[in-house]
Amino acid sequence: MTFKTVVFLLGGFFILAVGLGGAGAVEPDERLDDPVLEQRAREISQQLRCVVCQNQSIDESDAPLARDLRLIIRERLVEGDNDEQVIGFVVDRYGDFVLLKPPFQADTYLLWFGPFIIFLMGGLLIFYYFRKVLGAIPDGDNSDPGDREK
């Protein structure tokens, strides 16, 4: 493979990835006529995990269940529910697991604080390690050069 071919192929993959990345699975017949409500529906769908293909949001998933949920979200928005109520409707049935961004609450403290705790522990370890290493250097070496004459 020549250099040119490699560049060509990589470029092709890049264009494909960018092109496909933004596409949701929302079918034309699902869309609401009201662009504001439709935009809200898209934003809500992007926050909710599809329980069939779990690493996709229901906005991205082609699973029939994701489609049903997208339709329900739109129905509820048309009926006048706010965003929290719509998300609450899905969470009541499928649990916090469907929230792609985990909520900040008692049972998720470890998740949210865990990285900071580990960071702090690492920092403390480094601190004590270097204090020990520096402390192990004989007294004479880190004392004031002027003292040596005495």
Partner: peptide, 13 residues
């Protein structure tokens, strides 16, 4: 037929 009751049950499959 439209799967609404299954969603009320929290059915995933």
């Amino acid at each position: 037929a439209d799967g609404r009751v299954a969603i009320d049950f929290g059915v995933t499959g």
